[in-house]
Structures are given as structure tokens and as C-alpha cells.
């Protein structure tokens, strides 16, 4: 559909939240026990943090929960009974989500409807409406300006302009949301796209030349580059980058229980972990740098080769929360041949 533009008065956001709670299962940013920002289900608008700051965890868990039961089974005498979980009935509204989190869903949809239709994911995805809040300033380590990911699948985006939010509606689900609470929205009569462009220039989130896409040609020749070993060996192999990433979507399928009763579940997994491709007799990625290389190349080479978009929205969490501050953007630029100097100056030299 063609984009539509509305104005939402800043003092109407609370009312929008409260009224939406009657119709949607509303997810919004709030503060956890330690005061950290997190996507949660605040009960009142007072608990909502309607801010552009990124929470450590992205919003992907609402379509791909960290742990999800696929089937439960129980053995009674000779018979075995198995049943899947009941589908969640309510529509979800992701209220005030960052664009980089919201746009990630379109990217990972590809894999969930590729050779197999992943009903649990796609069901939740279909039921979710995205109400994004544009960033007024770049985040600590983000580089979304360097990646040309599509944003038109984000149902609505609210741009915080002077005195009001300029709400851009991009999908039918977005339109439905605005129609439901139409009394809160006013028509936008100015040149909305011009206003948005000005806003993004100022915020520093306007798309520059999409450099990271142009690194692909270099990356395709860099698999055997000697410096992986030295530059990626500081990786400790934790799951922070993948678990906080809005586009990482790998999971493991596990059984819990016994021969008599239990469940089959899926739970996030991460390619940077040493068990990821471990087989009984062999681990093809037998050193940490190979595992890190896999993550980078999957995002910037293998995934776009198969599905088109880069598996990255440039949110920068993998840098901010990395214990050893490995910088994926710098490494893409270096191994992609866009830059001559390696991050930190480390070279293998062999």
C-alpha cells in the first residue's frame, strides 16, 4: 500500500497505549529489576519507557521466544500421547519498538517460510503489529546508516518531531491500528517525507552509501584470510552477540523429560558457541575464530546470497555488549577490502 501520514500529539501517546491494551497484548519498553531497559508488558503507561534508547535484548523474542515448547508427550502403559502447545490467541502490539528491531522481522521471515513453514513463528508474526519509534540520535555503536535494509514492512513508524509524532503508516496492519484509535490521530498535510528526511539527517540515521553491502565481493575472497585467526581469537564464544541480535535466529531442538513423559522444545542457540556444530567425532569449526568467522560471513555473505538482504540491521548491540568489544562493522570493512587497517592494529602476518 502507499504510505499514509498522520500526526500523533505527544500527550496522546499514553492514551493510545492504555486503549490499545484493551485490544492487543501490548509489548513496550520498561525497566527490569536492575533498572535496565527491557521489552516487557508494563501494566500502565507510567511504567512505559517510550524512548528511543535500545534495550540490551532486541524485540525478536516476541516472534521467536528464547525457549518454546513444540510438543509434549506422555506414555501411559503402551500408548504414547503427544500434543502441541495451544496457539496464543491475542494480537500483539510492539509499542515503541526501535526501527532496527522492527525491520529485522522482515529479514528473518525469509528463513522461516523458506523450505518449511514454521507455524509457531509465522503465527506470532502474523498476529504482531509494529509501532516503531524512530531514533532521535544514533546509539552508542550502531551503524544502521551503513546498511540499506528495507523498512517498509514496519507497520507504523513514529518520528518525534517538534511537539508531535509524525506517524508513517506503511501496511494494512498499521492502517488498522490507526483506524481503531482514529480520534487520537490527525491528518498530516505537510511534506511528510521531507520532514522525515530532515529528521533523519539530524539524527544521523539517514542512509549513507550502503557500504557494508559493497563489502560482499571482498568477503567472498576472504575466507582463508590469515588475520581471522588473530582478530577473532579474542572472541570468548559467549552468546551475547547472537542473543541480543535482532536478526540472529538459530535455534536448537532439545528434549526434556524421560522415556515416560516430557516435552520437545526449541531454544536459541549460537554459532559462536563451541558446541554449535560439534558432532560426536568431529567439530568442523574447531577453533573460536572459525566460529566467529561463520557468524560474520553468514550475515554478510551466505544469507544475502540465499535470501537477498544482509542479516543485520546495524543496531550495534553485538559491539556494545560484547565482553571483548569485537567490532563486526570494522571487521566487515577490513575483510571486505574497504579498509586497510585492522581493528586494534592486530595482524597475523603469516
Amino acid at each position: 500500500m502507499a504510505a499514509e501520514y498522520y500526526r500523533l500529539n505527544k500527550d496522546k501517546v499514553g492514551e493510545l497505549f492504555e486503549r490499545a491494551r484493551a485490544d492487543y497484548d501490548v509489548v513496550a519498553k520498561t525497566r527490569d529489576a536492575n533498572g535496565n531497559l527491557v521489552y516487557g508488558r508494563p501494566a500502565t503507561f507510567d511504567d512505559v519507557a517510550f524512548v528511543d534508547e535500545q534495550p540490551p535484548m532486541s524485540a525478536k523474542a516476541f516472534a521467536l521466544p528464547q525457549t518454546e515448547t513444540l510438543v509434549r508427550y506422555e506414555r501411559e502403559d503402551e500408548k504414547i500421547r503427544a500434543e502441541g502447545p495451544e496457539a496464543e490467541a491475542r494480537d500483539v502490539l510492539l509499542f515503541g519498538v526501535n526501527i532496527c528491531d522492527a525491520a529485522a522481522f522482515d529479514i528473518i521471515d525469509h528463513v522461516f517460510k523458506w523450505d518449511y513453514l514454521d507455524d509457531p513463528y509465522l503465527g506470532r508474526r502474523a498476529d504482531a503489529t509494529l509501532f516503531a519509534l524512530a531514533c532521535a540520535a544514533v546509539q552508542q555503536d550502531c551503524f544502521c546508516d551503513r546498511i540499506s535494509y528495507a523498512e517498509d514492512g514496519v507497520d507504523t513508524v513514529a518520528y518525534p518531531l517538534e511537539g508531535y509524532y509524525l506517524v508513517k503508516v506503511q501496511t494494512e496492519k498499521g492502517r488498522k491500528l490507526v483506524e481503531r484509535y482514529h480520534d487520537l490521530f490527525d491528518a498530516e498535510d505537510g511534506d511528510a517525507e521531507a520532514a522525515i528526511n530532515t529528521f533523519r539527517e539530524k539524527a544521523g540515521t539517514a542512509k549513507k552509501e550502503p557500504l557494508l553491502e559493497s563489502a560482499r565481493a571482498g568477503l567472498e575472497k576472504a575466507f582463508e584470510h590469515a588475520d581471522w585467526e588473530i582478530l577473532a581469537s579474542t572472541c570468548i564464544g559467549c552468546g551475547i552477540c547472537t542473543y541480543t541480535c535482532p536478526t540472529c535466529h538459530c535455534f536448537d531442538i532439545q528434549d526434556e523429560g524421560s522415556a515416560i513423559a516430557g516435552r520437545r522444545l526449541r531454544t536459541w542457540d549460537h554459532c559462536t558457541g563451541r558446541t554449535f556444530t560439534a558432532m560426536p567425532a568431529h567439530q568442523p569449526r574447531d577453533r573460536q575464530y572459525k566460529r566467529y568467522r561463520q557468524r560474520l560471513l553468514h550475515k554478510f555473505w551466505y544469507y544475502p546470497e540465499r535470501f537477498g538482504p544482509l542479516l543485520c540491521t546495524g543496531c550495534g548491540r553485538c559491539i556494545t555488549y560484547c565482553p571483548v568489544k569485537i567490532n563486526i562493522k570494522e571487521l566487515v570493512e577490513y575483510f571486505g577490502g574497504l579498509k586497510d587497517t585492522p581493528p586494534g592494529g592486530a595482524r597475523h602476518g603469516k
Binding site: 588473530i230 581469537s233 579474542t234 587497517t341 585492522p342 592494529g345 595482524r347
Partner: peptide, 13 residues
Amino acid sequence: GHTFPAILTKDSD
């Protein structure tokens, strides 16, 4: 903008 661990070889800067 960060200080981070680095493993250097003779040929590193």
C-alpha cells in the same frame, strides 16, 4: 571508541 583486548604478532601495528 573502545579499549579492548588484542592479540598481537610481530607483524602487527
